[in-house]
Design a protein around this nucleic acid. Structure first.
Lengths: 167, 167
DNA sequence: TCCAGAGTTCAATTTAGTTTGAACAAACCG
DNA sequence: CGGTTTGTTCAAACTAAATTGAACTCTGGA
């Protein structure tokens, strides 16, 4: 207890805990690990940039988790390194523009799956066209056509999404 | 081996296996369990409606999985019960309109989270307004305002999404 | 060159979430 | 009724994924 006035800075206060919990929930919906939500959430309500060690101590997570979590968040464009004057240690700040967050998520988590899905389906459609039984071939080709339409819709929707979230 | 001509109907042929795999991948992106993808995938490439027992035998999953999976798919509006004349057993067909699938997913999996998030954040914003330190209060209120803006954006985007996918 | 601090890596562990299967309920029929 | 078939439930087992922490690399002084 070296700071009785402000409380132990290593513990989250109730408001901080609740905000972090909201982000933990949020990222679970997106299929990202809980630590990502904790880290981003704490950065989001911190007035100053935080170091990896700050995150480890305040969230009670391991250095490994913090390191991996920060890497993913950087890849998503959700955190960036703050300008730290002469310090060797790097400090992190959250990106808080929804456009940027959505864009990173779409680029890193959605597009790759969409693209690989498109490829697989294109190949399946070719296979379907070579089936002997005409009845079965017709049916499967229709279904594959349907899948291709879905993928095209998906591809068209993403840019619109980004545009709508971008303000 | 009671059907040498068409192969054992209990085993998926290679094309079927690949299509099922595509759906298994697809639902994982959406954060749904693998069995959901298997079941929907098999229904999607089946020319006839299938019973729970068909799914159990062809996918080698348990009755429990098939039952739970079908329930979730029904809730999502992704499968419906086929008109089965006099039969007691019920047969299932996939819904293949993207509008319906996306609508069900949004209604069941997205909206509830969005709404509960909105509520939590509204309450947090109130708490933030009662903070003593003016500097901290201002900062947190801004951040909460930002969160509320995100939620509003999310709420506005969903109907657009549905509209775009609805044809 | 050696040391100390910062950050990364990855095998082992833990946890969260899915699947199983046995027991149960419900519907139909002789 | 009793028996058979169909489908549901849920605690226990299992699996996939996240987290840990010890060993490592890298960098910047002294």
């Amino acid at each position: 207890m070296d700071d009785l006035l402000n409380g132990d800075p290593h513990e989250l206060d109730p408001l901080e805990r609740q905000v972090v919990a909201v982000f933990v929930d949020g990222v679970r919906v997106l299929g990202l690990p809980r630590s990502i939500g904790e880290i981003y959430g704490l950065l989001f309500i911190s007035q100053t940039a935080l170091s990896l060690d700050d995150l480890v101590q305040r969230l009670h997570i391991s250095k490994g988790s913090a390191s991996q979590g920060l890497r993913m968040l950087k890849n998503l464009g959700a955190v960036r390194e703050a300008e730290s004057g002469t310090e060797r240690r790097t400090y992190y700040e959250p990106a808080i523009e929804l456009k940027r967050l959505a864009g990173g998520f779409i680029r890193e988590q959605v597009r790759p799956h969409l693209d690989s899905g498109k490829n697989k389906i294109t190949r399946l459609a070719e296979t379907a066209r070579e089936i002997d039984d005409p009845d079965r071939r017709k049916f499967l080709s229709e279904r594959m056509e349907r899948l291709e339409t879905w993928m095209r819709s998906g591809g068209r929707v993403l840019p619109v999404l980004q545009k709508l979230l971008g303000q």
